[in-house]
């Protein structure tokens, strides 16, 4: 029995390693020919990407994806992704780009192309009940902290502060677990925590963002590695620059009721001056 499994495991290894990722064509040409572009977006990250009752995904990042499709004159297909699967979806060709609150990190640059200038930025912080009286990151040592699978800072928080991260596939699950008291805090992007708190929802009235935000990282549109310096990457790069210059991102932030981010103001000033 065992050796049989062994043989098949070896065959499987060979098979899957042979499965290439290669999608060598230029995505821009492909998208235009197909008349359709697929964007990976969040559907659990209010108000950047979330579901409305008709089942549509809406939000600030969805607006960005719509703008890109409009500029290309193609139809937009939205594909909901989570942190743990978005890069596979991109490399395997399910989507053409990621606009899903993805932080630009060196580790990830090995796998996906990051479009510059980045369109947003966030840092790491925690959402915690006021009663937990957290003051410093080191207060998390040895405590259970909820998180979301695939977030790049999970490992850092676990290693640096010896927190015990309990991570879930999606944000709602992690929030429910926090409310249920499964963990003492929820570690996530400060942008999300801020907008959750500022919505003045009574269920978060007794919660706070008590720590100093750490590890600020810009969010980038992700494309396949071959695309980043190709026509598709250049097109997106120009688009993103224009978003900053015209103040489009700042307008969207207002439209979705997001607390103004200093990053956008700084970027707007930088590109408007050019």
């Amino acid at each position: 029995m065992l050796s049989r499994f062994g043989k098949w495991a070896v065959a499987l290894v060979v098979l899957t390693l042979a499965c290439g990722h290669a999608m060598a064509d230029d995505t821009l040409a492909k998208v235009k020919a197909a008349g359709k572009i697929a964007a990976g977006v969040k559907n659990d990250y209010r108000p950047w990407g979330f579901l409305d009752p008709s089942g549509q995904i809406v939000g600030m990042e969805v607006d960005l994806a719509k703008d890109i499709a409009k500029r290309l004159g193609v139809e937009l297909q939205l594909v909901p992704v989570v942190a743990a699967n978005r890069m596979e979806f991109l490399t395997q060709g399910n989507i053409d780009m990621i606009i899903a609150t993805m932080s630009d990190t060196p580790e990830r640059r090995k796998v996906v192309g990051m479009i510059e200038p980045q369109y947003y930025a966030s840092a790491t912080n925690v959402l915690a009940p006021k009663s937990a009286h957290l003051h410093a990151w080191t207060d998390l040592t040895g405590k259970k902290v909820c998180g979301v699978q695939g977030a790049f800072y999970n490992r850092g928080v676990e290693q640096k502060y010896q927190a015990d991260i309990v991570s879930f596939a999606g944000v709602p699950d992690a929030l429910k677990a926090l409310q249920a008291g499964t963990c003492i805090a929820f570690v996530y992007d400060d942008t999300f925590i801020q907008s959750t708190l500022s919505a003045k929802d009574p269920q978060w009235a007794d919660y706070e963002m008590p720590l100093k935000s750490e590890d600020p990282q810009p969010w980038a549109i992700g494309v396949r590695l071959d695309d980043v310096n190709g026509p598709f990457g250049q097109f997106l790069s120009k688009t993103s620059e224009e978003w900053h210059r015209t103040g489009y991102l700042i307008d969207l932030e207002k439209k979705w009721g997001i607390t103004p981010s200093p990053f956008l103001v700084e970027m707007h000033n930088k590109y408007a001056a050019k």
Binding site: A83, A84, M87, E107, R108, K110, V111, C146, Q149, G150, F152, N154, R155, V166, S167, F168, A169, D173, A174, A177, T182
Partner: peptide
């Protein structure tokens, strides 16, 4: 895995989504 219990699938998924 779906409720964040660190069993084998959860551990593997955490590893592959961080070590890519």
């Amino acid at each position: 895995y779906a409720i964040g219990v660190p069993e084998l699938l959860y551990a593997s998924a955490a590893i592959w989504s961080e070590s890519l």
